[in-house]
């Protein structure tokens, strides 16, 4: 279980990216984090495993406060948190298998990782994960020879190789086509369900988020402005999250809910 208390982040330039964010993620729950670009979604996720240093507040994983750790202690805790990236962030010149095994780096001593002699259980686990994401035959290929969807599967396998207790997922589908996006989201939700794994998904595509997650959190200018089930997210709320003007110029053709929200996103991206 993850608990965030009063988390704030102010960059050295004076921009405040997060303002007093508090939330709790119980086991097995997938949370979708929505909001316009620059709302602090990415910063929030990175503050949890401290790829970005928070300015103040607490991040409790179980009962350990991650914000107080340093050096080795932080590395041990990072093992418990798997992360999946927007542009896959695979090490492109390594093989698929090495990329998956790199999820075990926090567990093995340096000489083992240097000689690529990982423990037998780690290798078994890596094979099992590659099988699960459907890439058994690609283990010996270099990561940069794979397609986008395949790369993201490797990224998922790498995160799960850590045997994490929490998944942080940063825009998993932003670089993928709509069909592959769906497949990846389905795979992620299945995998989380299998393991009772809590996850925070930072996602641009609101209809996609509605379809796959149990709870949505809306972030605007670094503040939580919505927290509830997808059904509770109405048009007024979307306007509140994404801003007035863009929303209304695109709203008219909408009947039910899904298709519209893509537009303000595009605007936000372009600006």
């Amino acid at each position: 279980m993850l608990t965030i208390k009063g988390l704030s982040k102010t960059y050295r330039t004076g921009d405040s990216a997060l303002k007093n964010v508090s939330l709790t993620v119980p086991g097995g729950q997938i949370i979708g984090l929505i909001g316009p670009s620059g709302a602090g979604k990415s910063t929030l996720i990175r503050c949890i495993n401290r790829l970005v240093e928070p300015t103040s507040g607490q991040v409790l994983l179980g009962d350990i406060d991650l914000t107080r750790l340093g050096g080795a202690g932080l590395r041990v805790q990072r093992r418990r948190i798997g992360m999946i990236f927007q542009e896959y962030a695979l090490v492109e010149r390594l093989t698929v298998m090495e990329n998956v095994l790199s999820g075990r780096l926090g567990y093995v001593p340096f000489w083992r990782s240097w000689t690529r002699r990982f423990p037998g259980e780690d290798i078994q686990r890596a094979w099992a994960l590659l099988d699960r994401v459907g890439l058994m035959d690609h283990a010996n290929k270099r990561a940069d020879t794979l397609s986008g969807g395949q790369r993201q599967r490797v990224g998922i396998a790498r995160a799960l190789a850590q045997a994490p207790e929490l998944l942080l997922i940063d825009e998993p589908t932003a670089s993928l086509d709509p069909r592959t996006s769906r497949q990846i989201m389905r795979l992620l939700t299945e995998l989380c369900a299998e393991r009772q794994l809590p996850a925070i998904v930072n996602i641009h595509d609101v209809p996609l988020a509605r379809q796959f997650v149990q709870r949505l959190i809306g972030l605007r200018a670094g503040e939580v402005v919505f927290d509830g089930p997808p059904e509770a997210l109405d048009e007024a709320m979307l306007t509140h999250i994404y801003g007035e003007e863009e929303w209304q110029t695109n709203a008219p053709e909408e009947d039910d809910a899904p298709p519209a929200p893509a537009m303000p996103e595009a605007r936000a991206l372009a600006s």
Binding site: T95, M97, E98, L101, R116, F118, G120, E121, I123, Q124, R125, A126, W127, A128, D131, R132, A139, N140, R142, E194
Partner: peptide, 16 residues
């Protein structure tokens, strides 16, 4: 998930 049926070995294929 049972991982027991998978191989315990993997060797990096030579690259160059």
């Amino acid at each position: 998930m049972s991982a027991l049926n998978y191989p315990r070995h993997w060797k990096r294929p030579p690259q160059i």
